[in-house]
Design a binder for these strands. Structure first.
Length: 830
DNA sequence: AATAAAAAAAAA
């Protein structure tokens, strides 16, 4: 038998190369055929390191190998004689070869990093016979992919290609390692006959895995009459090559549908083979998944695969339903192979998930290149881009767009309130990634649909939201807020008070109660189950079908924090809010008088929508204590200069006019020629600016170094060492209760894992500093955590909750108020 | 002194 094929690893390598062949044909953007053959040839060598005495010894006797087989793969391919052979046969230089070799060798999550000396040692350990076998196998592969060529690839291009090749290798390996699809067989008679056979298996396997891209359909997506922005998306001329489209319009203008219309046209123009819809939170991703189901089916000719990708995707009832029905559904499907891991979820025809799932691809984390590869063939749709405006996230997003464009991908960005400068930075990253000159577009038109380097639609019929402008009124104190809500609620108005800090929100609930007003409380410091319950109750009160009034006829009242800004479909008659940056206030104001068709102005208990902002007078001499007097805790949440500037601009404007007036408000606070702050706040602004630079710098440190290629620019760190978001450290508690059988999760779930997820509550780590949390080695807790992986034990503190809610001195939990930190020395009284 | 947000097993 020729070519070292008697070695079991040889068949596996050909299996994996055959899978890669099918994937390149069926699932990734087009690559010239000589590049495809080059990729297949190299991928066929990915497990070359298994050919060797050490690996055999490990398999037979369980001996420990000094180096892992994937490291040895690179060692063989970097051997001088081998490198010469490869360069000669492939018609290229070792400068182009080496980055690609590292890409296929590093298929276990990270790139190989061994020195020439240790690679020499690996070859020595493997033995002479192995060297002979390896060379034979490589020679046989040349004949299998005769068109493979390095011609025209220089070092810089090889660096760029290395990212995608690495990801492709991983996917091919995962598919090709499945024994159901590639059962062990007798050694074949020749490499060529074996490859011919296994190509059939590969085609079947790729289909079974759900990786054959569905064919896009030109079917009309929506049966309603398109609105202006949607019409624009359906008709704007697309440009050649990788395309970025930016849709800027107010909340509720139908941007998602516009993006889907545009995405469908991009698919039909072969700018991608699928979609990934990236959202800022898990909750918004869940909501998008619900909406995407029907339309996803219509975008494709055959039932497409549809996945939900985020940390708690398993809790989504809709996603579970799609998985359960995927064996026979004519609708959308998600087979077991795709559903098996979050990383794989990105490979589906239509993926919906958090932006973080995509961002992990540009951080040097384990299997990051799999994410890059999966996204490369997708139209990347990023929703609520304005939520990703902090320097760390923004820098990550720029990098993602740059890399996506480099790989030939297209993208659509959706936003309500993006500063022009931010829009320019994202556009620049994409255009530069696509290898084009960037022409800055500072046209302030709004709403707008623009394609950098291409067409733009800037004139829309002059529409004003049906509710008319939202008036701005200032309240000088908390007491005024209490009085206003008490009075409005008495007249039957549905009321909300948005506060910046959880403890301030709790204080407001107490103040309202003292004034005879009962209010619910919604923030993020609840066990997941309680938060879900309170959100559902709020939806029943303030949602489209909401009851809005209590039995006694008074309007329902809720006090909340920033969680309210996140796409929850509430409608309030009256809103009071702490001063917050203008973009946040615009989002909050979007929850005022939202459902005008169901609830026209005439039926409302107040004459007009007004946003009452609790803030000090911006004309009053402002110092660093300016805000703290009305917001004892919340004053620290946002940057002070931004807060003052918002007050100055918003109170002077006196109203929010959407959509026409939004751009001017945003630019006056965030733009290049923003309003200057008083001298007394200049120092605070300097500090904040410094912090922002530091954050962006940290992001640049953390992200993968694209130009350095996968070997030197990537990594295999634990995800937690390279967070997708910065923030103060938090600590997660797993609440439990005592049952006859021992500790059980605080709430029930369909499975133990689900019950645990639902019983988690997090808060800032510093708040626990002086608390004596339960000893985790106590017998009842040790019994509860038995069998947990280490990372889980490190990250979760199991806390038994007593009958009255006490956890330990100074800390208690209340299902309606959340996790409560109490002043010390007052015991457990509420 | 202080928000919300996300994330965690590989590939015989």
């Amino acid at each position: 038998m020729d070519g070292g094929l008697e070695h079991p690893a040889a068949c596996h390598m050909l299996d994996v190369a055959a899978v890669a062949e099918v994937l390149l044909r069926e699932g990734t953007p087009d690559l010239p055929s000589d590049r495809r053959d080059l990729f297949c040839l190299l991928i066929a060598l990915h497990d070359l390191g298994k050919i060797g005495a050490q690996f055999r010894a490990m398999l037979r006797a369980g001996l420990k190998q000094n180096a892992r087989h994937w490291q040895v793969t690179e060692a063989w391919l970097r051997e001088e004689a081998m490198e010469d052979l490869l360069c000669e046969r492939l018609g290229g230089t070792y400068l182009a070869l080496r980055p690609l070799v590292a890409a296929i060798a590093g298929h276990h999550g990270g790139p190989p990093r061994d020195t020439a000396e240790s690679q020499w040692r690996m070859r020595l350990d493997a033995g002479q016979a192995a060297a002979q076998d390896a060379r034979c196998f490589v020679a046989a592969c040349f004949d299998l992919w005769p068109r493979a060529s390095l011609a025209g690839i220089n070092e810089a291009e090889a660096m760029i290609l290395s990212w995608r090749l690495s990801g492709l290798t991983v996917v091919a390996d995962w598919v090709g390692s499945n024994p159901d699809w590639f059962p062990a067989a007798e050694p074949p008679t020749s490499a060529a006959t074996y490859l011919a056979e296994t190509r059939l298996r590969a085609a079947y396997a790729v289909e079974k895995a759900g990786l054959v891209a569905s064919v896009p359909s030109a079917t009309r997506l929506f049966d309603f009459a398109l609105r202006a922005m949607q019409e624009a998306a359906a008709s704007i001329p697309l440009r050649d090559g990788p395309t970025l489209a930016i849709i800027e319009d107010e909340t509720g203008a139908g941007k998602t549908e516009a993006a889907l219309l545009l995405a469908q046209r991009m698919l039909l123009a072969s700018k991608g083979r699928g979609l990934y819809l990236a959202l800022p939170t898990m909750a918004t991703a869940d909501a998008m998944f619900r909406r995407a189901r029907d339309v996803a089916r219509r975008i494709f000719v055959t039932p497409p695969s549809l996945t939900l990708a985020h940390g708690r995707a398993g809790l989504s009832v809709e996603f579970r339903e799609v998985m359960a029905r995927s064996g026979w559904s004519e609708d959308v499907i998600c087979g077991p192979w795709l559903a098996d891991s979050r990383r794989r979820a990105l490979l589906a025809d239509v993926g919906v998930g958090t932006i973080d799932q995509a961002l992990l691809g540009i951080l040097p984390t384990r299997f990051a290149t799999l994410r890059i590869h999966a996204l490369a063939s997708k139209i990347l749709i990023v929703d609520e881009v304005h939520e990703l405006g902090n320097p760390y996230l923004a820098t990550e997003l720029e990098t993602l767009l740059r890399l996506h464009a480099m790989g030939g991908g297209s993208a659509i960005l959706l936003t309500a309130t993006l500063p022009l400068e931010q829009r320019a930075r994202l556009s620049r990253a994409f255009e530069e990634g696509a290898g084009r000159a960037f022409v800055e577009d500072m046209d302030p038109a709004y709403p707008v649909l623009s394609i950098p380097g291409g067409a733009a639609k800037r004139s829309f019929p002059d529409t004003v939201s049906p509710k008319g402008p939202v008036k701005i009124a200032r309240l000088g104190s908390i007491d005024e807020g209490v009085a206003l809500i008490a009075q409005a609620s008495a007249s039957g108005a549905a009321c909300v008070w948005v506060r910046n800090a959880v403890d301030d929100a709790i204080a407001s609930v107490e103040a309202l109660r003292a004034a005879g007003v009962e209010a619910d409380l919604l923030h993020a410091r609840y066990a997941f189950a309680d938060r879900k319950r309170i959100e559902a109750a709020a939806l029943a009160a303030f949602g489209p079908e909401g009851g809005r009034r209590r039995n006694d006829g008074r309007g329902k009242v809720i006090v909340s924090t920033q969680v309210l800004e996140m796409s929850l479909d509430y409608d309030f008659d009256v809103m009071v809010s702490d001063l917050a940056p203008v973009a946040a206030l615009i989002q909050r104001a979007g929850r005022l008088w939202r459902h005008m068709v169901r609830r026209p102005a005439a039926g409302r208990p107040v004459p007009a929508p007004v946003l009452h902002v609790v803030a000090p007078d911006p004309d009053r001499p402002a110092d660093t204590r300016w805000l703290a007097e009305v917001q004892p805790r919340g004053a620290w949440v946002y940057e002070l200069a931004e807060q003052w500037r918002t007050a100055e601009v918003l109170f002077r404007a006196g109203e929010i006019v959407a959509p026409g007036g939004l751009r001017a408000l945003i630019e006056a606070v965030h733009g290049d020629d923003r309003v200057p702050v008083p001298d007394t706040l200049a120092a605070a602004e300097e500090v904040a600016l410094g912090d922002a630079y530091a954050e962006a710098g940290l992001a640049r440190m953390n992200i993968v170094k694209i130009a350095a290629g996968y070997r030197d620019g990537g990594g295999a760190a634990d995800d937690r060492d390279y967070p997708t978001r910065l923030g103060q450290e938090t600590r997660a508690l797993l609440l439990t209760r005592r049952a006859p059988s021992g500790l059980v999760p605080w709430v029930e779930g369909e499975s133990r894992a689900e019950a645990e997820l639902l019983s988690e509550v997090s808060a800032r780590a510093t708040q626990f500093r002086d608390l004596a949390l339960p000893d985790q080695s106590a017998p009842e807790i040790a019994a509860f955590t038995e069998g947990w992986p280490d990372w889980k034990r490190v990250n979760l503190t199991v806390c038994p909750v007593e009958e009255g809610g006490a956890i330990c001195e100074g800390l208690r939990y209340d299902g309606n108020l959340g996790l409560l930190f109490q002043p010390r020395g007052r015991g457990d009284e509420p």
